[in-house]
Amino acid sequence: MPPLWIPLLLLAALVVWGILIYNGLVGSRNEVKNGWSQIDVQLKRRHDLIPNLVEAVRGYMTHEAGLLKEVTEARARATQAASGGMVGASAVGAAEGLLGGLLSKVFVAAEAYPDLKASTNFLALQEELSSTENRIAFARQAYNDAVGSYNTRRESFPNNLIAGGFGKVDFLTIEKAVERELPKVEV
């Protein structure tokens, strides 16, 4: 008689195969989520550094009180937008974009204050802030990388047969909208 275990074995192999694909999709989706939280971490880092920057330059940049006030306000708005749970919404993108533009303005304006430029405190802050800007950019980039491989994995055959519960994720392209409304920094 034909042994019963052959179809059983095939069935078991099919189940294991399905589990592997499913877990791969879950892992891929988690990478997307991690990528997202990494952006938040870096935005938070930016918000935390700004009061230090304003404090450090206030004494030197006597003619830029208005600019510094703008920075403080933009930071407040960005923090508010982030805590409002509207992450990724255009509100956050716009607030962060404005903040980024104002920060570059501060560093350009700092050129007119030789004492400030010579202060080690300011130089250290400058490095920290520009690194934070880089980190935000790289975190976005990594997020999009994760989204790309997640979407590919989700859509490719045979994964798509069991990827019903895995929704498509959009790339983060807020920067384009923000870029347009940014004040141009001209020197």
Binding site: G100, S104, V108, A137, N144, L172, K176
Partner: peptide
Amino acid sequence: AGFVDAPRARARAASDAL
């Protein structure tokens, strides 16, 4: 979309300006 390179290009432009 230019969203990846825009901040980097901006940072580079700012540093060149400095």
